[in-house]
């Protein structure tokens, strides 16, 4: 590999169209994201067909913008990394088709990146040194998983959610409270001024000995029922208290399960990844507990926790270094697992 390896990373797995140029898997030269939030807000969630259409409109201009911002030309790229799953298949296909065509046109490597793997590699863009083996908690609208990484590309899922993802529950609670979409930031804002002891919500699977799986559907139902009950009885829910209690229940589970994972495995670092990792309360509580435990916590800045192209380019760089190049038969896989990454 040349001394200066420039990778273009493309991401279109859900409702953000993103492209980024990353140098040597570590240094972001540009990171452009076109959010579709405004487009989906009135539907209360992401509409796949609408998302796919917007991706196709945006992806080439976003690539141009990423190149212009980084000051490099297409000809200087070593490879094109693309997120090919998991995600919405129609959305993924736009990124995958574009990456395949572009890599063929430029005669450069095509690199397939698992979207979850991409989230984990956002940690390599923080400047912190990552020392394997590590554990990463990936927590987003689509995933809640504890992943053990022996080395680059060697991942093992230690635990995952058995039902809803944590971010999904944030969105659903926000929708029930008519706080808009996406729900995470709105809930976090309200919760800052609330009393988390005002409501008692369940923490699922905490009692199951040594198990690292998650479950959030019980919590979701409890919160939604509570909202209904309060409204039916004509009481106006104190949003601050309710969101604070809900958020604390989610954070409790995420922190405790992570603690369990680092105790069960020979690791010195815990990485956080995914959109929910942008949550301030989770970051603070996790920091405190890991400090006490003597575990170094690495967290990407909030803008690298949500979907972006830089994380895909970073993961792509390490795949390329291991000679893992994709062929032109690459397809989008909506339920792509971490196995074989």
């Amino acid at each position: 590999m040349p001394h200066r390896t420039l990778i273009l990373g493309l991401e279109s797995s859900c409702d953000d169209t993103a492209a980024a140029v990353v140098l040597n898997g570590r240094q972001i030269l540009s990171n452009i994201i076109s959010s579709q939030n405004d487009l989906h807000r009135r539907f209360g969630g992401v509409v796949p067909e609408i998302a796919s259409r917007r991706h196709l409109e945006m992806i080439n201009p976003i690539i141009d913008e990423a190149l212009a911002k980084s000051g490099i030309t297409l000809g200087e790229l070593e490879g094109i990394a693309v997120s090919h799953g998991p995600g919405l298949v129609g959305s993924l296909l736009v990124g995958v088709s574009t990456a395949k065509a572009l890599s063929y046109a430029l005669d450069v490597s095509l690199i397939a990146v698992n979207h979850l793997e991409g989230h984990i590699y956002a940690n390599f863009l923080t400047g912190a040194s990552v020392n394997f083996p590590i554990i990463c908690l990936v927590v987003s609208g689509g995933h809640t998983s504890l992943i053990y990484m022996q080395d680059h590309g060697e991942m093992e899922v230690l635990g995952r959610t058995r039902d809803d993802a944590a971010g999904e529950v944030f969105d659903k609670v926000a929708r029930a409270l008519e706080l808009g979409f996406p729900g995470g930031p709105a809930i976090e804002n309200l919760a800052q001024r609330g009393d988390s002891a005002a409501f008692k919500f369940p923490r699922a699977l905490m009692s199951e000995d040594g198990k690292l799986d998650f479950s959030f559907s019980g919590l979701k139902t409890a919160v939604l029922n509570c909202i209904r009950r309060e409204t039916e009885q004509g009481r106006s829910v104190k949003l601050e208290d309710l969101t604070a209690a809900f958020q604390e229940a989610v954070v409790d589970v995420l922190v405790e399960k992570s603690l369990l994972a680092v105790r069960q495995n020979p690791v010195k670092q815990l990485l956080l990844a995914g959109g929910v990792a942008a949550n301030g309360e989770l970051r603070r509580r996790m920091r405190r507990r890991m400090d006490d435990e003597g575990i170094e916590l690495v967290i990407p800045p909030p803008q690298l926790c949500t979907d972006n192209g830089a994380m895909i380019a970073a993961a792509g760089y390490y795949n390329l270094r291991r000679g893992r190049v994709a062929s032109q038969t690459l397809n989008a896989v909506s339920s792509l697992g971490l196995k074989g990454v």
């Binding site: 796919s52 196709l56 992806i59 297409l74 129609g90 296909l93 574009t98 395949k100 065509a101 572009l102």
Partner: peptide, 19 residues
């Protein structure tokens, strides 16, 4: 087909942009 249209158009756009 919506999906078919997008595969063709994004491939064409990618080729045109790269070349």
């Amino acid at each position: 087909s919506f999906t078919g249209i997008r595969i063709g158009v994004s491939t064409a756009r990618g080729l045109a942009q790269g070349l």
